[in-house]
Design a protein around this nucleic acid. Structure first.
Length: 271
DNA sequence: AAAAGCCCCTGGATGC
DNA sequence: TGCATCCAGGGGCTTT
């Protein structure tokens, strides 16, 4: 489910309301991808100071330490004054003085991990290899080009890897490459400076637009208020195999790259 | 160092 | 209706 836009939309939907909240208790359901890293009772009494995002991770800054949240493939957060009794897939409740933050995650690829500080080994194990944030000034064309030059893998998979630039998942990789007119199978090292500029702009454009549209809701994503996203309605190629290209007279095609589906228009993305 | 596979897990869609 | 198979927004880890 959640790529950068969905995680950012989630963050924006509850950050202001939880900031300043005191943790009253924690309820854990089935195990997630990793253990919390401390006894959940140890969180009681701490304060949620702020909510940040790094790549697809949410960082809940506490007055002592921080929580790293990842939504995996099927996770979503909700924040409400009162929550109904937990369902089968509600695996983490952070009960606070301002409301209950709840993680629902059927597949349990998600995680909630405590770290004493952002630079700690516990946090850096997850954050340490992440690439640059695409929606900041730090995403710089020349460095991006240099990074691509030393990679021989197909550009789609380099975007997905997240060690050059973060946040681009399976939907937005296909969408950005369409906007840039680049075929997903092209070796990253063979993309010219000029086309790198187009890709750089395309990544920013598609992610920013998706945030503005509330993310993509393919099956079950919603923000912390339960509101669905709309970006899927304007996707150019993702999940549109066999349908007419929205730009030319061609037909959208799908292939598999690294066990993931890729979508592109063979006519608009010739090389 | 980089690239390619392999899993973790559940549920929905599809096909026989 | 029942059962098997495939597929899904991620990404850390292990093996080439």
């Amino acid at each position: 489910m959640p790529e950068l836009p969905e995680v950012e939309v989630t963050r924006l939907s509850f950050a202001d309301r939880i900031a300043g909240a005191r943790i009253v208790s924690v309820r854990m359901g089935k195990p997630l991808r990793w253990p919390l890293g401390l006894d959940s009772g140890q969180l009681t009494g701490r304060t949620v100071v702020a909510v940040r995002r790094r790549g697809k991770y949410l960082l809940l800054d506490l007055d002592q330490g921080l929580l790293l949240l990842h939504l995996g493939m099927s996770g979503s957060l909700s924040f409400a004054e009162r929550q109904p009794s937990p369902g089968a897939h509600d695996h983490f409740d952070l009960v606070t003085s301002r409301g209950v933050l709840r993680l629902n995650d059927p597949r349990r690829f998600g995680a909630v991990v405590f770290a004493p500080e952002e630079q700690s080994q516990e946090a850096q194990k997850l954050l340490g290899r992440l690439g640059v944030e695409p929606l900041t000034e730090a995403f710089e064309i020349e460095a991006f080009h240099q990074g691509l030059r030393r990679r021989n893998a197909p550009i789609k998979q380099v975007l997905l890897a997240g060690d050059l630039v973060v946040g681009v998942g399976n939907i937005y990789a296909s969408e950005a490459l369409f906007l840039a007119g680049i075929r997903p199978t092209v070796r990253a090292s063979r993309i010219s400076r000029r086309r790198t500029e187009q890709l750089h702009a395309a990544v920013r454009q598609v992610l920013a637009r998706a945030v503005a549209q509330g993310g993509s809701t393919l099956r079950d994503f919603s923000n912390a208020h339960g509101e669905a996203g709309l970006f899927q309605l304007e996707a150019m190629v993702y999940d549109r195999a066999g349908q007419a290209c929205r730009v030319c007279t061609g037909t959208v095609k799908t292939i598999r790259q690294g066990q993931r589906a890729t979508y592109y228009c063979p006519n608009c993305q010739k090389s």
